[in-house]
Each structure stands twice: as C-alpha cells, then as structure tokens.
Design a protein around this nucleic acid. Structure first.
Length: 1015
RNA sequence: GCCGGGGUGCCCGAGCCUGGCCAAAGGGGGCGGGCUUAAGACCCGCUGGCGUAGGCCUGCGUGGGUUCAAAUCCCACCCCCGGCACCA
C-alpha cells in the first residue's frame, strides 16, 4: 500500500510540474468559446488550509475541470483574505503565547513536546494544564495562547522558528497564504495563479474604495446610533468572524421598568413588560453588593456587572457608590404601572450577570417567581409580608382556569427554586403558551391605583389584547413617562472575541452601517436570488429568510488589516464587507498589473469604465495615464468573464457572506452581471467527529497530501458525501479509495497494449459490458451537470470498476481468452473511463492516460459522449437472464439439498410464449391494462391460453425497463444465449448443463422463465 | 410554533426526485471456508423466517390511501437533528 501511495505522490509531482510548465491552468478571454467563471470563497490566511477547506476547493475544482472538458473556457482564480480580526487576533494570541513562555520560563520546543505527551487523548488545554501543574507554573491566562502554539507546532507541524517570525499580521498572512497556496498547488487545483491578490494590495483597496463610494452614492451606507457587539478592550465591533468559535453575537433588548424606592430606582429588566400589572414584589439577589449608578439623572441600582455594561450603552453614567441588597430588602417600591407599593424581597435565582440584576416578580406568570415566593413563606423573617401578597393574574389563556405559571408548577411538582432545570422548562412552557394564546384580562386595569382617565385609556389600549401587542404597548407607555428604558444584553452569551475578551453590547453613536434593511435593496436581492440556481436547491429558503432578516450591519472596525473607509479614514472596512464583489477583481488584476498600472491611477472613474462600461477610454487614458488599450482590454476581460457562473462555499456562509454577495451584486451591477449560481457544501468530519482546535484533530492539507497523496485526498472528500451534507472522512473510506485506484491502474496496465480493430460483431457478454458502460457515461454526465459528485464518483470508481471485474471473471469462467473483441471493448471503455476521472483524480487520470500511450494533456480532451448506438438492451437483458437462470439453479440446489449435481437440464419456452410476452409488454408500454390485453390476446392465441396469458401479463408487469426494451426489439433467443454462456453456467453451477426446447415435461417453461431439471 | 433535513436489516449507510431487476447497493461486525507454521493482510461463501425444485411469509418510524404493483407517490401522526422565532 505504501508503495502505491508513493507512486501516486510521485506522479502528482511529475504532472504538477508539467502542467505548470505548459501553463495549463491559465485562462484568457477567448470569444470563440463559451466562458465559465467559477470561484470559491478565498481563505483567511490565519492558519494553513485543512481538510475542511479542501472539500470546498475540491468540489469547485472537479466542477471546473468537468466544465472545461465539456467545452467551456473556464476561469478558476484564488486570492487571500487578509482583512480584519481573523488574522490580527491570531497574531495577538501567538504573541501572547511567546510572552507566556518567557514569563513562565518554558523552553519552546521542550514545552510543546511535553504538552503533546501529556495531552493523550484529551484536549490540548488539558495537556498544557498538566505540564503547568507538574512544573508548578500554573497560569490560566496563558492556557489559551499556548494552546495555539501547540496546535501550530504539533498539528500543523510548523517550525517554532517560523512562528516566532510571524507575530505581526502581515507577516503571518504572508506566511500562511504561501503555505495554503502551495497546498492548493499540490492538490492540483486548476487555479490561474497569475490573478492571485490579497485584500491589502493597494490596487485591490482602490477597487474596494470604489465599491464603497458606490454603495454610499446609492444611499445604502448609513451612519447612526445602534447597538453592536463590542470588544471592550480593543474597542472594536465584533461579528461572527471576529469571535471565538465563530459565534454570531446576538443582541437582545430587555425592557427596563423603574421601581422607585426613596430617591433610588430599581431597574427591573424583563422580556415581558405586559406582566408588570401583575408584579407583586421586586427581587434582588441577597448576596450581591449592588451599585448605585446615575443614568439619565436617575439613581439606578444595578448589579456590578450591569453597572459595567451600562457604561457602553448610555451617556453620562456616573458611579455613586455601593449598596448591599440587604439594605433594600424589606422596603417598599412603587410599581409605576399600577401606582401601588410592593415589597422588595430576596431571591437567589436572580443572576447578577444577566441584564440589570434586578427582577420584578410576577408569580401568576413566571414559575421562578411563584416558587421563590412559596420558598419565602418558610422564612420567618418574610412570612408575614409574603402572606399578604395577592397573586394577580394578568393574562388569560382559553381553557385555563388557573394562571399558567401556577398550573405548570403544580403539574411538574416543583418544590423549590433550587430545581433550576425543571423551572426553566416550566418557564418555557408558560411563555410560549401565553405568547401564542394569551390575552390581557380586563380586570387587570381595575386594580390599579391611578385615576379614572388613566384607567380608561389603559382599558382601551390593553384589555383583551393579545400578549405580543400588549407587551409593546406597555413598554412604550412606560417609556413615555420616563419609567421605562432599554437594556441590551448578549443573548447567546457569554461570547468572547478572538482577542479573548467577553463581548458586551455598545450603543454606537457614529458607527457606519450598510443598510441591508433598505426595502428597495431587498427587492433587488430577492430578484437576483430568484434568477439564480442554488445547489442544493433546498437551501434556497435559507437565502430567502436571510434576505428578509438582514438589517443594518456595522461595516467598519477600528483594528485589523484592510481598506480604510474612503470618507472616514479612522475606520477600516471589515472582512465580511470587503469580500462581496471581489470576484470582479480577478477578471482584470493581472492585466492591470502586467501593464504596470499603479494603484494611484485606479480612481473611481477608471473602475466605472472597467466594471460598468461608463465613460470614454480615450479621455480616461489621458486623464490618468493608463494606456487606452489596457483600459479596453480590462473592460473586455471583465465583460467577457462576468457574471460569476458558479460560486462555491461552505454552508456556514449562507447567513452572511453569500447573501451579502447577492445584495452587493444586485446593488452595483446591472442585471446581466448578477451571479448565476451558488453551490453550498457541508462540513468535513473525521471519523464522525467534528474537527476542532481544542482536540487537535485538524488535518492540514499539506500533511494529508504527504500521507495519502493528492488524488486520494481529493477522491475521499468528494466521494464521502453528496454536496449538501457533511462528509465524514474515515480511514475506512480512504483505504477503499486507495484499493480501487490500484485496481484501476492494474486494468489500465492490462489494457495498454491492446491495439486491435473493432470486430464485426460482439459476443453478448462484450455487448453487455459496452452497453452498460455507455449508460455509465450518460449517468456520470447527468450527475455532474447536477453537481452530484458523490454519485458520479461512485459510478466511476466503484460501479464501473466492479462491472469490469465481473466481466473478466465471466470471460475466464466461459473459457474465453482476451480475444480481439474483448481487447477492443476493454480498450474502448478504459480510455473513456480514465478521461472521466480527470475532474476527481487529475494526476492519476493524467498518468493513466499517458500509460495508454496518449501524448496530449487530458484536461484538453473532450468529455466522452455516451454513444447511444452502442446501447444494446438485448445484450443487457441476456446477461441478466443468464444470471437469473444461475440464481434459480442455485436456489434449487439449496432447497433440494443437492450438493453435487450430476447434470442440469434447461428447457426454453416455445416461440409462442415470446409472442405473448411481447404483446403484453406492448400493451403495458402503451399504458393499457390487463383487461384490454386479455380481450385482444384471447382472440390471437385462443381461449385455451387464457390462463397462460394472464400469467404472462403478470410477469411482464414485473420486468425492468431494459428487458422490456429488449423484448420489444425482438427479444432474446434464449437457447442461443444459454449456449453462449454454457461454460460459464457450468462453472458456476458445478455440473454439466444441457439446453433444449420444451419437450413436454411437467414443468412448462415460458418466455424469460426457463424450466430447470437437476439430476 | 415556523422553516429545512432525517427515521431503512445486528451496526453504519445507499436507494426515494423518475413506483416494478428491492429481502433492499456498499461497508462494518458475526459465522463458515481458502491461503499461511501461526497471526495479520488477502480471497470465497453465508448472515429476516419457513421450505427436499427455483416458492411462500414478514419487512424500509406509525396508521391510512392511490396503484395491477409502494422503502419509493399522497394524507395524517409520532420521534430525532439543524436553523429561526419565542423565552428573567
């Protein structure tokens, strides 16, 4: 096995050189051919590319190669995404790692080795902790940065000397992009590397500048106040690609309701403002030292965490000191909604880390509150207070007598607030029930302490209203008289930025946004999507939902590499915003660069000309000093290659990048330049497990290639799963792939010397093989058109291979040699078969092609055509028929317990039986039923045959399509076929076989169903 | 609750779009045999039940339906997974 892998690696290096020398992957404008522009999402060079990347790129490449062989002029380019936090955060962590080593006095290589040993089968972090403990140098802050160092050194096998050199972003990006580029070349991707660029190249930045000026001109850029997820240390907004674990931070707004106590306010945070009418008390966590903070001129009591968070959300926040919860508990607070005084009580379930750390208590509708109150009844200090509390139901649900919270708590048998899990489940139930079916009770309003006018107004607004409406109204009403406010919280928190800091919500005053919420823009995006092909189609809905869901999106950062915002250079355009139409850049950059066009010359007007065809080349040439022909060539190139015909990426990018891609194209380009197709693929898992940094089970492409060869890696990821689902790479599949490639090679070596004329006619066996192969060609082609790559590879590397093996075995068992016919058929098939392997295992296919004596580059050969005239349903049906006869004989032997048969006699049906069957098939093919068939057939064959006719029709119904075709074409001469395969049958059955016409025995054969006698 | 995916034999997993070569590909595991001093690798056979003649029965989440014929099409339901909504 190792020898074979060595062989595969060797041929891959050989052909890589040959291809590069021949500039085989460079694509230029060629008006004589239809073009196909295919792109895959470019990577962030913050680590070397791994198997997960290789899936997207291998799919893209296989498709590119298929299209090229199908007659298209195919352009497949690649670049590198240097922008933003992904790269910079990695350098920060690496820097920290080296500082940690120094601080803790570890020697780098020695440390890494020790960790790797200590790790065992657990996580890298555990390994680090073990080593730290063993050496008595524990520093939790250092665990994470050091994890990265170990990952790079051991999993990615990068020399530590190299790592020391790449602690600034540009150096790191350059280093990893060159490794990734090399691995892509090793994998044989058909990339036109002349067009490579990075997102910090000056000319690219000018292109992005143009794009943003366009967006601004169109009114899609806004400046405004908006809550954003924020790294409080690095002072920069964060989104999915800026967080650890790529979590999109979600912002949730709590309504804050101010309960007055003396000159202080308790800001209770709630998601259910409408229940304030049923608030019976306010909860504080008795163990927390609260802080008094001045917000908008009022003194709010907040948990320490909330006091910290609110500084990012409000102006003029002043800390005024501390107050322990105990000082407030027992006092009365004013419920602003009802005008009634309610007590402040202690509750441990109140989490000071969530929202304000102050909660209002609505026992009728919140299980936590209800249970906490019941608990308090046991407390002598609060017993009296609690017993005076009257539970006030605010919401009614049809069919429910009791308030929902109480009912659910009773049903679930919850006894104390310690039963957190149960309570959370109860809460879920109550809320979803009341949200969907609940309405505000009329009597709620009666109980409030305000005057007639207020009551009347509230009654009109709230009584009998559905919960969602009432919620909004209540919150608005409270805000209107300064008793309500908003507090933002990270909903899926805690979320950490890539720098390692806990993300907070910041209300940004002058942030720049792209407004994907613009209705006109949304309309264009919908239209663009509607015209686009989405593969697999079932993801279309996700795109539609994302288009609807997208709103304003912060598009600038204060940190990281990238293009400054053209009108406000303090900001850098963030990574998901500068990568939406960059495919256009590939169509022209090598032209501009090879003609020495400088970034300074690439002013917006120039881009207007190149990308939109606006303006006059001659005038622009004079103005900016770019030769006119260069401008024209760039314009022509863009116009030729654009739009993008197929865009490839992983499915995690649907909700951001891919949808932004649609939006931005729709905004900037005319309709005929909108993308044509998006192809989305799933992830790669290893032996059923997600690849993860912490486990260190990531396989970089470079290492996989070293271990298994490029073709094996490619075929494995391509074959593992169909495009839309996750692909599991396992040694099991890898081994099968290797074995099959080896078998293919053996066949090619056998066939390479076959050089014979096409024979006059083919034996049935050969005609069967040939015909089946033609069907394979047809199916593989169809599968590739639909990007069913698993299906295509399955047919080629497994089905076809097995059939050829079967053919050879049958040939041998029939006592035939590799005669002219066999040689011709095998040669015919193997040549085309090898061709079709080009998209999936290009190096291997190329080598096989040349083994066959060919001298052209296979990628320049046309994709095989399924030659329909070679289809032979009679041969296919005959082969099946023979197999069926053998099966039947074996079955008889088994059932009759005959171990060593002396002789097998087969009798075939008389002609008449065939005529009946043919007639039956004709009727079935015309969609006619048994009744029609019988009435006509009885006339032809006579009434005495009625029973046989009925049976024939039944049998015909069960026949497969190919056999039916064969019968319509005249059917098979069963006797002849059996004679032809006699030796083979004898070999299989282990006894001499005798074939004859029906001789009137007790078993009556019929068409396609022989009579068998075993002696 | 909404949207999407899924439930297949001891296990994994294809098939379902386009109904019939489907007792259901391919693996894995198990059993038996070959090769070998032996193990491993490799090769062959068996692996739902019954059956002394190629047959019958049961079967692809559950229950119905369409059809000459359903794993495949339609309806309803149950369960699992992902996303969203919702939830102190």
């Amino acid at each position: 096995m190792n020898d074979f892998i060595e062989y595969l690696k060797q041929i891959s290096e050989k052909w890589r050189k040959e291809w590069e020398r021949a500039k085989l992957h460079e694509a230029d404008v060629d008006e004589s051919k239809p073009k196909f522009f295919i792109t895959a999402a470019f990577p962030y060079p913050n680590s070397p590319a791994h198997l997960g990347h290789s899936r997207t790129y291998s799919i893209t490449d296989a498709y590119a190669r298929y299209k090229r062989m199908s007659g298209y002029n195919v352009l497949f380019p690649m670049g590198f995404h240097y922008t933003g936090t992904p790269v910079i955060a990695m350098t920060e962590r690496l820097k920290q790692a080296f500082e940690c080593l120094k601080k803790l006095g570890f020697e780098d290589k020695d440390f890494v080795e020790k960790v790797w040993q200590a790790k065992g089968s657990s996580t890298i972090k555990d390994g680090i902790r073990r080593v730290m403990e063993a050496e008595g140098k524990v520093d939790e802050e250092c665990v994470e940065p050091l994890e990265l160092l170990v990952l790079f050194a051991k999993v990615f096998e990068l020399p530590i000397e190299d790592l020391r050199k790449i602690t600034d972003p540009l150096a790191m990006a350059n280093y990893f992009s060159s490794i990734t580029e090399e691995s892509m070349k090793q994998m044989g991707y058909m990339i036109d590397w002349r067009r490579k660029f990075t997102t910090v190249d000056p000319d690219f930045q000018k292109f992005i500048t143009w794009q943003f000026l366009k967006l601004k001109e169109l009114g899609y850029i806004e400046r405004g106040t908006h809550p954003v997820a924020w790294d409080p240390v690095y002072n920069t907004p964060v989104s999915q690609h800026d967080t650890k674990g790529d979590v999109e931070p979600e912002i949730e707004d709590y309504d804050v309701i101010l309960f007055k106590v003396g000159d202080l306010y308790l800001p209770a945070a709630t998601l259910r403002a409408e229940t304030v009418f049923g608030a019976t008390n306010v909860w504080l966590n008795p163990d927390v030292e609260y802080e008094i903070v001045e917000v908008n001129g009022k003194k709010w009591v907040l948990s320490p965490k909330a006091a910290y968070k609110i500084k990012y959300q409000k102006d003029d926040v002043k800390s005024l000191g501390k107050i322990s919860a105990k000082e407030l508990i027992g006092k009365m607070a004013l419920n602003p909604a009802t005008g009634k005084e309610i007590p402040i009580l202690p509750a441990k379930f109140v989490d000071p880390n969530v929202a304000t750390g102050v909660v209002m208590s609505v026992p009728a509708h919140a299980p936590f509150d209800y249970v906490a109150l019941m608990d308090l009844k046991q407390d002598p200090q609060f017993k009296d207070l609690v017993e005076r509390i009257e539970i006030i139901p605010v919401i009614e649900v049809p069919g429910l007598e009791e308030p929902a919270a109480i009912k659910v708590v009773k049903e679930m048998g919850i006894k104390s607030q310690e039963e957190k899990e149960k309570l959370e489940q109860a809460t879920k139930e109550v809320y979803s029930l009341e949200y969907r079916k609940g309405r505000m009770r009329e009597d709620v309003i009666e109980k409030i302490a305000y005057g007639k006018e207020t009551k009347a107004a509230l009654k009109v607004l709230l009584a009998k209203k559905p919960v969602p409406d009432a919620r909004e109204l209540t919150a608005e009403w409270l805000k209107a008289f300064d008793m309500g406010d908003v507090f933002y919280e990270i909903k899926n928190g805690p979320v950490y930025s890539r720098f390692g800091n806990e993300v907070v919500v910041k209300v940004l005053k002058d942030q720049w946004f792209i407004n994907y919420g613009d209705p006109e823009w949304k309309r264009l995006a919908r239209k663009a999507l509607a015209q686009m092909k989405i593969i697999p189609e079932r993801f279309r809905k996700s795109f539609e939902d994302t288009i609807e869901w997208l709103q304003r999106r912060a598009c600038a950062r204060t940190r990281g590499l990238g293009t400054p915002l053209p009108w406000d250079k303090r900001w850098v355009i963030e990574s998901l915003s500068d990568s939406t139409i960059y495919m256009a850049f590939y169509t022209v950059d090598h032209i501009l660069r090879s003609n020495n066009v400088k970034a300074e010359q690439l002013e917006p007007e120039v881009w207007d000309y190149i990308l939109l065809g606006k303006g006059d080349a001659k005038a622009l040439s004079e103005k900016y000093g770019i030769p006119e022909n260069v401008l024209k060539e760039a314009r022509r190139s863009f116009d030729y290659w654009y739009p993008v015909d197929s865009r490839h990426s992983g499915m995690d990018l649907i909700r951001n990048h891919l949808t932004f891609f649609i939006f931005n194209h729709a905004a900037i380009f005319p309709e005929d330049k909108w993308p044509r197709q998006i192809v989305v693929n799933g992830f790669v898992t290893l032996e059923g497990k997600k690849m993860s940094k912490s486990l260190g089970n990531i396989i970089p492409i470079t290492i996989a290639v070293k271990k298994y060869s490029p073709d094996v890696v490619r075929l494995t990821v391509l074959y593992s799963a169909e495009i839309g689902s996750n692909a599991d790479v396992s040694t099991e599949i890898i081994e099968r792939v290797i074995n099959n490639l080896r078998s293919v090679k053996e066949l090619v070596e056998m066939v390479k010397g076959f050089d014979v004329e096409k024979p006059e006619s083919l034996p049935t066996l050969d005609a069967w093989l040939l015909s089946s192969f033609v069907r394979d060609v047809e199916e593989v082609t169809k599968a590739m058109d639909e990007l069913k790559i698993r299906e295509a590879t399955n047919i080629l590397y497994f089905v076809t291979l097995n059939r050829i093996r079967e053919y050879l075995e049958t040939l041998k068992a029939s006592g035939r040699e590799l005669d002219q016919s066999a040689k011709w058929v095998l040669r015919y098939i193997v040549e085309r078969w090898v061709k079709m392997m080009m998209p999936f295992t290009p190096f291997f296919a190329e080598e096989m092609w040349h083994l066959l004596g060919k001298e052209t580059f296979l990628i320049n050969e046309p994709w095989p055509i399924a030659e329909k005239e070679l289809l032979d349903p009679i041969a296919e049906a005959s082969k099946r028929f023979v197999e069926r006869v053998i099966e039947d004989i074996m079955e008889i032997l088994k059932v009759a317990k005959i171990e060593k048969p002396k002789k097998v006699r087969i009798e075939v049906a008389p002609k008449e039986s065939y005529e009946m069957l043919k007639m039956a098939v004709e009727y079935i093919e015309q969609g006619k039923g048994m009744r029609e068939f019988m009435s006509e057939a009885v006339k032809t064959f006579g009434k005495s045959k009625a029973k046989e006719l009925r049976e024939t029709f039944q049998r015909a119904l069960g026949l497969d399509e190919v056999t039916r075709q064969a019968i319509l074409k005249g059917g098979l001469d069963e006797k002849k076929v059996l004679e032809e395969f006699k030796k083979y049958i004898e070999e299989k059955v282990g006894a001499p076989v005798e074939i004859s016409e029906y001789s009137g025995g007790k078993k009556k054969p019929s068409a396609m169903k022989v009579a068998i006698y075993v002696e």
